[in-house]
Design a protein around this nucleic acid. Structure first.
Lengths: 334, 334
DNA sequence: GAAGGGTATTGCAACGTTGCATTCAACGAT
DNA sequence: ATCGTTGAATGCAACGTTGCAATACCCTTC
């Protein structure tokens, strides 16, 4: 059933080493020998044993990708791009779902040391960045979207503060004055929400608009349901907003849903800006204005970082902070 | 940097084998020895080398999952469930994106023989089922949603014909008479679209409604854009439909989008039923009526199949065809 | 005090592959 | 004819782990 170099060698009447040479193509092999070996390989259906290869080479050709949720459109799209980009480099991707669970993230880092993977791309969510830095695994690490504390690892992200500032500024420029924010997550160590909140406040301050605490809504997660809940709370509150900046497109879509339910016209009565540029947002009714991070670049540069560290561990540069571009895409909700 | 059993053994002053015993916990070790070894492990930060373990054990603890697109909500949600379920069984999942590309699917099956993976779950798309059966890899295989030709592998799917029949029947029961179908894919070997079309036609026949060729729209892919295009063609055609059965929720959402654009009221002027029950559909405006496959069961039973074949290759039963339940979820579009 | 049974520890070998060094043959140049 | 060079094929060893079998030791029992 499972044939080895040895079996092929026996069948072709050559040594194990020669078969290995044919398979790898590294050394020179006489044409007729090569042909004979190839025949034996085909007949036996030989496939190299990657565990043995990895053991020998000290590398697996596998990288790990850890994201909170695969089923969320943003991470789904990003994972798709990363896998695609990894294939280009003939890497295989192991995907892990941490589910916003700190334990799962810890387990993952621990396994990173187990050297199943040559490198790790992680989008931290629940784990304390300081702990993350301390537990740094035995393999090269790239952080997505999270500022690592003392530069423990390479990091790829958009400029969240500026992006949120732009989103809010866009609403202000449309004449909106009661601008709510949906998506604060003070309970999580993940800094993304904090940065976006900072950008939101900065834009308000610059325009001389008051920061209303009740207009800044905390959410448990970034799903549509959370956005819907927050929107309902806002509309039931003392001062209904005339615009909303949601920290993710999913939140925005949830908010949009509630706005429709309540009979509000979008964007006339309520303008909405999201964040992520997921595909759904292009097909919502009306289509969603959003901040679009350059996901393709996130994927490319993350893998570039990993490749540099995996293949040239010698000339290790200090951890880098890479900022990928973003842009405001104006659609129907503003 | 990378410590081995040998290093730990040297430090703790015991043999390599004893360290291995401590790590695996299989044999009995004296408490004080265990403690001494554990200290050495902690100090050196020892992590087992999984390549070596796999080589020894003949198993990797990794299973492969091949889906056409990670970024599509349906596959994203399904992948999430599968990964979660795999974690429960302490398996790691490698995800591969075939992109509806037959070559990618072939490459994957070939690699399956490379024994990086102990088993493979594949959602075939572009590959000819007959070829798929012929190329059966060296590892256990589970097919998602595809009827394998001569029962070459286990298969997990919903009853597509019946489900499509129910969806169409639902529209008929609402009094609709000009019911279009969006999602035919005669160019693909993937049988899913064909089965859903069959169910659609069966329902029409039973109700004595004519099968209008121009009401059965072919699509290139199952995305919103394809649904939008097909809907536009239908509305520009000679007889505008009063209902649409879309073979996926994404198609349905694209169609819904165009319906809004054209000023049609949904469901009054146009009723829509989708297929998949993706999360977006619950938050569209109005929420989407759809056929919901039991994704949790798809995940559970696929992995159960794999586990059976991986751990008990001896008592190999013939390939099974598992049908998972589905149900019609009525929401706002009908 | 010898025999028997259990516990704790160990050495050897093997999983399948590839790097290194070596061998052997053939050929062209001197 | 001899030497050096190149091409082709090979054997040995090692990657880090664990199964198997063997050993050494202590304790109980008659």
């Amino acid at each position: 059933m499972s044939s080895r170099l040895k079996d092929v060698a026996a069948r072709a009447g050559v040594s194990v080493r020669t078969v290995s040479n044919v398979v790898s193509g590294s050394a020179s092999v006489a044409p007729e020998t090569r042909e004979r070996v190839q025949e034996a390989i085909d007949e036996l259906g030989y496939r190299p044993n990657l565990a043995a290869r990895s053991l020998r080479a000290g590398r697996t050709g596998i990288i790990g990708l850890a994201i909170p949720e695969l089923h969320s459109p943003y991470f789904g799209e990003l994972a798709g791009l990363l896998v695609q980009e990894a294939q280009r480099r003939s890497w295989t991707v192991i995907i892990d779902q941490t589910g916003g669970d700190a334990d799962a993230e810890r387990r993952l880092l621990a396994r990173g040391g187990g050297r199943v993977v040559d490198g790790l791309i992680i989008s931290p969510w629940a784990m304390d960045p300081a702990e993350l830095a301390a537990t740094a695994p035995a393999v090269p690490l790239v952080l997505l979207g999270e500022r690592s504390p003392q530069g423990a690892a390479d990091r790829v992200a958009v400029d969240n503060v500026t992006a949120a500032d732009e989103a809010t500024g866009h609403l202000i420029s449309l004449g909106r004055r009661r601008i709510a924010a949906i998506g604060l997550q003070p309970h999580l160590h993940n800094g993304t929400a904090r940065l976006r909140a900072e950008g939101y406040r900065r834009a308000l301050d610059r325009a001389g608009l008051p920061r209303l605490p009740e207009a800044q809504r905390t959410v448990a997660a970034l799903h549509r349901a959370d956005g819907a809940r927050a929107m309902a709370e806002l509309l039931d509150g003392p001062t209904a907003p005339d615009a909303v900046f949601a920290f993710s497109d999913e939140l925005a879509l949830g908010a949009l849903h509630v706005a429709h339910e309540r009979g509000l016209r979008v964007p006339e009565d309520l303008a909405i800006v999201g964040f992520d540029d997921i595909e759904d947002g292009r097909y919502s009714h009306p289509p969603l204005t959003t901040i679009a991070p350059d996901k393709q670049q996130i994927a490319e540069r993350s893998l570039q970082c990993l490749a540099d560290r995996i293949y040239s561990p010698g000339n290790a540069v200090p951890p880098q902070e890479l900022t990928v571009p973003h842009r405001l895409i104006r659609r129907g909700t503003t």
